[in-house]
């Protein structure tokens, strides 16, 4: 069972790396930011699988941190980097 968990975690890491294409190529800032948020979500799943496979319950706390705090970066983007530009245009 652990092998399966680890294999799925590896697969998630691969999808995460595939998601980097969107960050690198955009084209709009919102695309890049959403891809970074997707990074966070995938990392949460990855951490939960690792916590089960490696028997480290503490990793769940880290996943919880990512899930909770992801909102802060997203709101910072909306308030400081996005709305301002659309106001001016």
């Amino acid at each position: 069972m652990n092998t399966l968990y680890l294999a799925v975690a590896l697969f998630l890491l691969l999808t995460l790396i595939a998601g980097m294409w969107r960050i690198l190529h955009g084209p709009t800032p919102a695309d890049r930011m959403l891809a970074a948020q997707l990074f966070g979500t995938t990392a949460v799943a990855c951490l939960l699988l690792l916590s089960q496979a490696l028997e480290q319950p503490a990793l769940r706390d880290i996943a919880l941190v990512f899930a909770l705090l992801a909102a802060v970066t997203a709101i910072a983007f909306v308030k400081r980097a996005w709305l301002k530009k659309s106001d001016e245009s």
Binding site: L13, M20, I23, L24, G26, P29, R32, M33, A35, A36, F39, G40, A43, C46, L47, L50, Q56, A58, L59, D61, I62, F66, T73
Partner: peptide
């Protein structure tokens, strides 16, 4: 773009710490 890439870098660093047994 550099800043968003840096945010992603930070996320991945957390995975590296996990693998190094440093929760």
């Amino acid at each position: 773009r550099a800043i968003v890439l840096f945010i992603a870098f930070g996320l991945l660093m957390a995975l590296a710490w996990v693998r190094l047994n440093a929760p």
